[in-house]
């Protein structure tokens, strides 16, 4: 619904959302740690965690959106994504981060750090993809 406070954002980023890890453990989204993602990927067998370094953050033609350029994985593949400024990414060893942490906290109640160039985010690929 356009009137939803989280319009354009997935509901699972709202503080208090229950997340199921690959081993069945339940955690709140704000309590997730780097190890939870790494261990879940190991258990899943299908998914592989990649380190995606933020190379550039630039404005988008869309209001409240940015284009983030990542350098993904060992091959340093350059990938650009357009996201809302409040969209949270999980930074290795740090936790949730977004381009506009104040807005993320306002909309989702999720505490965030400021996402910056050089931050290493967790991303996923399918193991079958080469």
């Amino acid at each position: 619904s356009p009137s939803s406070p989280t319009a354009g954002l997935p509901p699972f980023f709202m503080k208090g959302s229950i997340i199921q890890l690959a081993d069945g453990e339940l955690k709140r989204v704000e309590d997730l740690r780097t190890e939870d993602f790494v261990q879940s990927a190991e258990v899943s067998g299908e998914l592989k965690i990649d380190s995606s370094t933020v190379e550039r953050i630039e404005g988008s033609g869309t209001p409240n959106a940015v284009i983030i350029q990542f350098s993904v994985g060992e091959n340093k593949a350059q990938v650009c994504v357009e996201v809302l400024v409040e969209y949270p990414f999980f930074v290795f060893g740090q936790g949730w981060s977004s381009c506009c942490p104040d807005r993320t906290t306002q909309l989702l109640a999720l505490s965030c750090a400021k996402l910056s160039v050089g931050d290493v985010c967790i991303s996923l690929t399918l193991k079958s993809l080469k």
Binding site: F12, I18, Q20, L32, S52, C80
Partner: peptide, 25 residues
């Protein structure tokens, strides 16, 4: 009687982006 409300549970992999090299600019 009040029915207990089910709480949605989300899969961990929903929270991290799939960055595939096919998206390369």
């Amino acid at each position: 009687n009040v029915e207990p409300r089910s709480v949605p549970v989300f899969a961990w992999h929903s929270l991290v982006p799939f960055l595939e090299t096919s998206q390369t600019k």
